[in-house]
Design a protein around this nucleic acid. Sequence first.
DNA 1: TCTTATTTTAAACAATTTTTCAAAAAAAAA
DNA 2: TTTTTTTTTGAAAAATTGTTTAAAATAAGA
Lengths: 240, 240
Amino acid sequence: MEEKKSTILVVDDEERIRKLLTMYLEREKYLIDEAADGETALQMALNKDYDLIILDLMLPGMDGIEVCEKLRESKATPVIMLTAKGEEANRVQGFEVGTDDYIVKPFSPREVVLRVKALLRRASKTKFLETEPTTKNVIVFPHLTIDHDAHRVKVDNHEVDLTPKEYDLLYYLAQNPDKVFSREDLLKDVWNYEFFGDLRTVDTHVKRLREKLNRVSENAAKMIVTVWGVGYKIEAENQA
Amino acid sequence: MEEKKSTILVVDDEERIRKLLTMYLEREKYLIDEAADGETALQMALNKDYDLIILDLMLPGMDGIEVCEKLRESKATPVIMLTAKGEEANRVQGFEVGTDDYIVKPFSPREVVLRVKALLRRASKTKFLETEPTTKNVIVFPHLTIDHDAHRVKVDNHEVDLTPKEYDLLYYLAQNPDKVFSREDLLKDVWNYEFFGDLRTVDTHVKRLREKLNRVSENAAKMIVTVWGVGYKIEAENQA
DNA sequence: TCTTATTTTAAACAATTTTTCAAAAAAAAA
DNA sequence: TTTTTTTTTGAAAAATTGTTTAAAATAAGA
């Protein structure tokens, strides 16, 4: 079940962004190289076969678009472009420069990891040309079902309306059942990297989440467990 | 339920167009080869039995028409010709050169996929020369029916006039019921590859689509669901 | 070709929903 | 009991979507 680790090149002039991405991607067992400017990045990308490159659009000297175009003259390495909100996201989106996907800053780390996985999956599919049985994206617990494609949550087969953050939070916890996350962890992973808000914000969302689940089933609400002095987790078992 | 995968040769001198087509076709589980010029393309097409060839009209050296004519001396492989707007679409259209279909640039990726499917269906039918119960291309929901062959939408058996984009959008969502698409997804897949517009353009089309459906049936309009903070989807169930 | 009608896009504003933060109340631990 | 932590509550601030309107692009017709 273990695959060979993919190597990823992360390019951004801001060190904190590089470190942030590196941290999250290494957590997923990818091997990461970093570059802070376009020239270096291009050289590295040409000299080594990366499985993926994450490339900031705005770079000192040679910008992301130019790097991508130059790279494309000799390599087809998948590229995810990072663009600030107003920037030329459109142009990047338009495939004009051979970008495979793009992410708008500020992003949530979780989102980046998901996109990276998706793109690597797509790329490897291309390579091996295998029929992948379209994986349904559903998490199932005794009283709770999360259909990620439909973005739908059901408690005892009864649909529950969640706000985006409530959904993200539940989905994140549900992906790692029985693992406790501190409020810091949750703010880091579920919120985007620019959010430096109050830790208590997490509590508020947990409260509303529990309330909504509880309206349908007390058992479902009890799945979200407070670990005193530590944080929150979802318990898969602990169900009637 | 799994069929053998069709192999397709994509020929265009612009890499971004090749990559774009490859990406969308691979998503549909086709096996893709690429060629950047006419000579290479012809050689590849003669040495391997492709199920379909997508051929750009304008190519350096030997152009698309010549490739097609030369190919036709020994093979009947179906060919879709890509032509820029002003180009000799007429000549190609007239099937003078043995082309089976043609698409005018810029195209929307979705359109290409549909044409490819249609042509492959036609071609395979020809092969077996059997009375195949012409697969109707109809999507049916409780209050909504989309007949793609006729390009006709009916709500509670009452025909609804949609503009092209409205239709495309509805059809795209209807093909993947219960799956949420972000505005970015929709712009990428439903609009053509040259469009780099505002995300909110999607909202406007959704609004008008809902309005037109709502004139006939509120239930039909309610099928198009806003997923707050994420995008839009069509709900198959959620119907009275 | 020129004119007219239709469709598409985009911007601005309104309406709605969500998120955040702060502070009091409650609960758990020491 | 005292202290610490969590839960609850409410309301302002922020973000997102809905709606309207006008300009731009496109297609159709004269």
